[in-house]
C-alpha cells in the first residue's frame, strides 16, 4: 500500500527524520512506538504532506504512485488519512458542512456522483450512533469546544466517512477513558479490511489489545531501529527504550 524509502525531513534546519524505511502492504496493521520527540508525529505529518516540514531526501510511494511531491489534498484524495494527535478547532465551520465537502471531494476524484445533504446525513448518522455520538454533533463547529475524547471520536467519524486506503492514527488512544478507547478501537476495526492499511502510533499496549498489529516498529531519534511482532510492545511496556541505545 505505502512504501517509504530513506525518508529524511527537517524543520528550521533541524534534522528530525533521518532515513526512515517502512513498507506497509495492503491488509496489514503496523505499529510505531518510540520516545517523546523521536519523530513519530513528524513522520505522520510528512506522509500527509504537511509543508511545515522540509523533505530532504527519500521518497514515499502509494500503490506505485510517487507522492513525495504531491499536494496535501491530492495525497488525501489518493487515499491517505491522518488521524491528528492534536486536531485543530475551526470555529464557524460545521462538522456537517466540512465532512460533506471532504466526502464529496473524494467522490468527485473517484468519478462518483456527489452526495446530497440527505444522503450524507443518513450515512453520517449511522456512523455517529456506532461511536455513541449524538446527531447534534454534526451541527457543532469542527473540534470547537470538543472534549479530548470527542476530538478523537471526531477523527474516527471522519475516517469512517471518508474510508481511505491508509489510516495513520497518531496517538488516537491517548487521553481516552476505557469505554471511549473501546469505541475508538471498534471504529478502527470496522474500517480495517484486506484492501486497506493502518499505521498506529502509540505509547501504550492498551489499544493493541483490541487491534492486533501484524508488525511493530520501534523509533529512536528519527530512525526505525527495530522491527518485529507484538512481543516488542510487551518488551517496551516492561523495559522502556534504553536497551535499544548502544
Amino acid at each position: 500500500m505505502i512504501k517509504i524509502e530513506n525518508l529524511k525531513a527537517s524543520i528550521d534546519d533541524k534534522d528530525i527524520l533521518k532515513g526512515i524505511n517502512l513498507d506497509i502492504p495492503a491488509g496489514e496493521v503496523h505499529v510505531i512506538m518510540g520516545r517523546n520527540g523521536s519523530g513519530k508525529s513528524t513522520l505522520a505529518n510528512v506522509i500527509a504532506g504537511n509543508e511545515t516540514y522540509e523533505v530532504d531526501g527519500g521518497n514515499i510511494t502509494m500503490e506505485d504512485t510517487d507522492i513525495t511531491e504531491m499536494s496535501i489534498e491530492n495525497r488525501a484524495l489518493e487515499g491517505i488519512f491522518l488521524c491528528f494527535q492534536y486536531p485543530v478547532a475551526i470555529p464557524g465551520v460545521s462538522m456537517a458542512y466540512f465532512l460533506r465537502s471532504a466526502l464529496n471531494a473524494h467522490r468527485k476524484y473517484q468519478g462518483k456522483e456527489e452526495m446530497d445533504a440527505l444522503e450524507f446525513l443518513n450515512k453520517a448518522k449511522a456512523i455517529l450512533s456506532e461511536l455513541g455520538l449524538d446527531d447534534s454533533f454534526l451541527k457543532r463547529s469542527i473540534n470547537d469546544g470538543f472534549s479530548g475524547g470527542e476530538k478523537k471520536k471526531s477523527e474516527i467519524l471522519q475516517l469512517l466517512t471518508i474510508d481511505p486506503k491508509l489510516a495513520v492514527l497518531d496517538e488516537t488512544d491517548s487521553g481516552l477513558d476505557v469505554d471511549a478507547l473501546r469505541t475508538v478501537a471498534k471504529g478502527v476495526n470496522k474500517f480495517k479490511n484486506e484492501n486497506n492499511s493502518v499505521l498506529i502510533i502509540t505509547h501504550y499496549q492498551r489499544l493493541l489489545d483490541y487491534i492486533k498489529p501484524d508488525v511493530v516498529h520501534l523509533m529512536i531519534d528519527g530512525q526505525i531501529v527495530k522491527t518485529g511482532d507484538m512481543s516488542l510492545v510487551e518488551k517496551v511496556e516492561k523495559d522502556g527504550y534504553s536497551w535499544l541505545e548502544k
Binding site: 500527509a48 488525501a76 471531494a105
Partner: peptide, 11 residues
C-alpha cells in the same frame, strides 16, 4: 488550512 486539505479539500 492543513487540516482541511488533509481531508481532500483543495487549497
Amino acid at each position: 488550512i492543513f487540516y482541511l486539505r488533509a481531508r481532500g479539500i483543495d487549497q
